[in-house]
């Protein structure tokens, strides 16, 4: 096993900073898992490969965050460990060993996942998948850019690494939104439907959770500018209820999820729950 060398544990993470790491990891893991459902089912071979490459990037990012979080937890004071106890997997507590990345990814209960609701929604049709990816990548691009300035060097390092990947995801998904929106009557209708479905979930990006270190509401303007520019090109209407108040679907960041997450988790966690501590 390789150990992250630049995990600087001299400055112990606060419980809030630790929850924030889980939130970042969960966003990437859950969307990565969702996108992986396209493996072997993409509309064309190249696009099947593209969406699963994006999936792989996201799962890789999640691993970096989970590895950091696991190491940081093991080095925490008892007081801080107690403060994050509600986020730790029950099964792991019976293992009597240090916390590892896989415990965080595969053994927590639904309510302990802190991902954005938009990441757990079903993959839907291709239009829904690419539009969700576009909204998500446009947000991640702002978020990781901001995290480059984080005082925590490990966090800033993961953000710098990931940002290069997200730039590709954002470009790819922007192009697909334009291609479908400005395509045929059928493709336009499909992405329009996806827009109605997904738009209410976009407010959660900019509603900071109690543990969030950075004020995500400051990303809202740059995100909207990007969306507006791509939508104009895609001949899509600027969604109604652009005000945050009209985009009310939230709760994921605090562990309150849609019914879709449990189903996703039961499939994703099956192996670690059936064969505890199994390794590849």
């Amino acid at each position: 096993m390789t150990q992250p060398a630049d995990t600087d544990l001299s400055h112990a993470l606060t419980p809030e900073a630790w929850a924030f790491l889980l939130h970042l990891a969960d966003n990437a893991l859950i969307l990565g898992q969702r996108n992986a459902e396209w493996c072997g089912h993409g509309p064309a071979l190249e696009q099947d490969i593209a969406i699963t490459n994006i999936s792989l990037d996201l799962i890789g990012q999640a691993r970096n965050f989970y590895q950091y979080a696991a190491g940081a937890y093991n080095a925490m004071s008892i007081l801080n460990k107690t403060a994050v106890d509600h986020l730790l997997p029950r099964l792991w507590k019976g293992y009597d060993r240090q916390l590892e990345e896989d415990d965080l990814a595969f053994l927590r209960e639904e309510r302990q996942y802190l991902n954005l609701l938009i990441s757990e929604l079903p993959k839907g049709d291709w239009a829904q998948t690419v539009l969700r990816q576009f909204f998500f990548s446009a947000f991640q691009y702002q978020q990781y850019n901001d995290l480059l300035q984080a005082e925590d060097e490990q966090l800033a390092g993961i953000a710098a690494k990931s940002l290069k990947e997200v730039a590709y995801h954002l470009r790819w998904s922007s192009e697909w939104v334009i291609r479908l929106g400005d395509g045929t009557a059928e493709s336009h209708a499909r992405i329009d439907n996806a827009l109605k479905e997904l738009w209410p979930f976009t407010g959660e990006f900019f509603t900071p959770a109690s543990y969030e270190l950075r004020d995500t509401s400051t990303y809202s303007t740059a995100w909207s500018d990007r969306v507006t520019a791509v939508f104009e090109e895609a001949t899509l209407p600027t969604p109604e209820g652009a005000a945050l108040g009209a985009r009310l679907q939230k709760g994921g960041k605090e562990g309150i999820h849609t019914e879709y997450l449990g189903i996703l988790l039961s499939e994703m966690q099956y192996l670690q729950r059936t064969y505890p501590n199994a390794v590849w």
Binding site: T2, A5, D6, G157, K161, K164
Partner: peptide, 8 residues
């Protein structure tokens, strides 16, 4: 073998 992320 250590893994280092930064600089990317």
């Amino acid at each position: 073998i250590n893994q280092q992320l930064a600089p990317a």
